[in-house]
Design a protein around this nucleic acid. Structure first.
Length: 492
RNA sequence: GCGGGUGUAGCUUAGUGGUAAAGCUCCAGCCUUCCAAGCUGGCUACGAGGGUUCGAUUCCCUUCACCCGCUCCA
């Protein structure tokens, strides 16, 4: 799909979301706030349905998973132990020549020995030297590029100097200094703004699970393997935001940390990759728009043994929805070392303590919402209507109730049906304008079913039930509506 | 943050140095026996702030937001 078409589709989606009350720009009356979005009356229902499905499928329906809900503000040491303080930033450089922006360590670095004039280039972690000098560099993969300047020349032992850095795009040396971007939000804990009170808004929910590991296992009688799930907000000062709700600075995650015996982590990793992929299929996302993308070896964090993304084919291209990672014992080890506490599992089989490995599944709520909306968006040219073909179980409004015309008691009968159904599901009553207009409105909101009271209802008590996607109608006694709808709305 | 593009009603567009038009949507009615029909009436806009000017939506500057790219991830 061309970029232009993708943009058009995204624009239409953004427009529909606003028009129908799914998603609004944050603080719109003040001009908006970059990358922040608010969920309106329909959007919040859709979001709740998505989160409820996850919570049900990953937590409550499983015997081996429990949930929790940690505070967004946590002790600053959590983020030192997790590695976020040290690593959650990227020094970036701008090329003044071609305007390219790149990570500082991606810029080719030229080093020279001032004594013997040995020269070499480090590019993307790889040392490049003339063949005849190769034996001075037995380890062709560089250490951190920043450690070469001042280190001894492998040929003569004098200290190397950094000759220049160049733009990986155009080769220019006219580069801006590297700038640090800390991706964590800092805020003040307590009313006095001294540095001692600085804390972070969590950049992920996972750490709330790790730091509560001991609390949970000592109160929940869990046996390996077991998982702890959490849904909650996370905050990151992303350098580049955009694509509607796809990448924002405040977002919501659905994370599962699944603890396993270290020797079984591969098995469970594969299990969860498949499980999570299937979850999106079950949500009703078309399989041809979903794929799994295993990370290559050089993409992996040093402690991770495997990582696979679930990707969706958005109008703007394939992008990550969720990451599933085999993180080994890294996270618990870090907190064990930093806190000095024993975050271990007592294994009754071997009568010994062990640190479990963890398989993490980290999904984006907002990205799932965007996926659901993009996948459901359909322009039905045959009937000249726009339809959100949402999975009925996810739809913000499950059923709309209409009187065909506003007379002969039809509105009263329809209103009674509406009130009865509203006790059990999100229902919507509408008696304005033509019947066709009312159907169209609900099509755009993704309402899967519409009930219409007509003149035959006055005689035999039956009503029509219209299906959103097929436009087919069945007629049934109004007493049977509730059981019929309940059956149809059951998630499968 | 840097570069490029965009910004008039909910949406799509028109227009002008003298404070703005239309279609659709929406709201209130009328009329209507099943898919955006018709009739009447109504609400709603020049993203924000400065400057130039007698007067700025229009010209200039700044700013904000959105889109694309660089980058990153949920």
């Amino acid at each position: 799909m061309s970029k232009t078409n993708g943009n058009v589709l995204m624009d239409k989606l953004v427009s529909l979301c606003k028009r129908r009350g799914f998603i609004f720009q944050s603080s719109e009356i003040y001009g908006g706030l970059t990358s922040c979005w608010d969920y309106g009356p329909l959007g919040v229902e859709l979001k709740r349905e998505v989160k409820n499905r996850w919570w049900h499928d990953v937590v409550t329906s499983r015997e081996d998973v429990v949930g929790m809900d940690a505070s967004i503000l946590m002790h600053p040491k959590v983020w030192e132990a997790s590695g976020h303080v040290a690593n959650f930033h990227d020094p970036l450089i701008d090329c003044r020549q071609c305007q390219a922006r790149f990570r500082a360590d991606k810029a080719p670095h030229y080093f020279q020995c001032p004594e013997c004039k040995l020269e070499f280039r480090v590019f993307d972690g790889l040392i490049e030297v003339k063949k005849e000098l190769a034996n001075y560099f037995p380890d062709l993969y560089a250490r951190d590029v920043n450690t070469y300047a001042g280190s001894p020349c492998p040929r003569c032992g004098h200290n190397l100097v950094l000759l220049k850095k160049t733009c990986p795009n155009c080769g220019s040396v006219d580069l801006s200094p590297a700038r640090q971007f800390n991706l964590m939000f800092k805020t003040h804990f307590g009313p006095s703004e001294d540095t001692a009170s600085e804390v972070y808004l969590r950049p992920e929910t996972a750490q709330g699970i790790f730091v509560n590991f001991d609390n949970v296992i000592s109160t929940s009688r869990l046996k390996l393997p077991f998982g702890i799930g959490q849904i909650g907000k996370a905050f990151r000062n992303e350098i580049t935001t955009g694509n509607f709700i796809f990448r924002s600075r405040e977002f919501e995650q659905m994370e599962l940390e699944y603890f396993v015996r270290p020797e079984e982590s591969q098995k469970w990793y594969e299990y969860w990759v498949q499980e999570r992929f299937n979850w999106y299929i079950k949500l009703g996302i078309r399989a041809e728009n979903l794929r799994l993308r295993p990370h290559s070896q050089d993409e992996l964090a040093h402690y991770a043994r495997g990582c696979t993304d679930v990707e969706y084919k958005f109008p703007f291209g394939w992008s990550e929805l969720e990451g599933i990672a085999d993180r080994q014992t890294f996270d618990l080890d870090q907190h064990i070392n930093a806190s000095g506490k024993k975050l271990t599992y007592f294994d009754p089989e071997t009568n010994a303590h062990l640190v479990p490995a963890v398989v993490e599944s980290s999904a984006g709520v907002d990205r799932t919402i965007l996926t659901v909306l993009a996948d459901a968006y359909w322009e039905d040219t045959e009937h000249d209507r726009t339809v959100l073909r949402l999975n009925p179980a996810l739809a913000p409004i499950k059923v709309a109730v209409f009187p065909l015309v506003n007379r002969e008691g039809m509105p009263e009968i329809a209103a009674n049906i509406f009130h009865d159904l509203k006790k059990y599901m999100a229902a919507f009553y509408d008696d304005s304008g033509s019947i066709g207009r009312r159907y169209r409105r609900q099509d755009e909101a993704g309402t899967p079913y519409a009930i219409t009271v007509d003149s035959q209802t006055l005689q035999d008590g039956t009503v029509t039930l219209r299906e959103r996607d097929s436009l087919l109608q069945i007629r049934l006694p109004k007493e049977r509506l509730l059981s019929e709808l309940k059956a149809r709305l059951e998630p499968h």
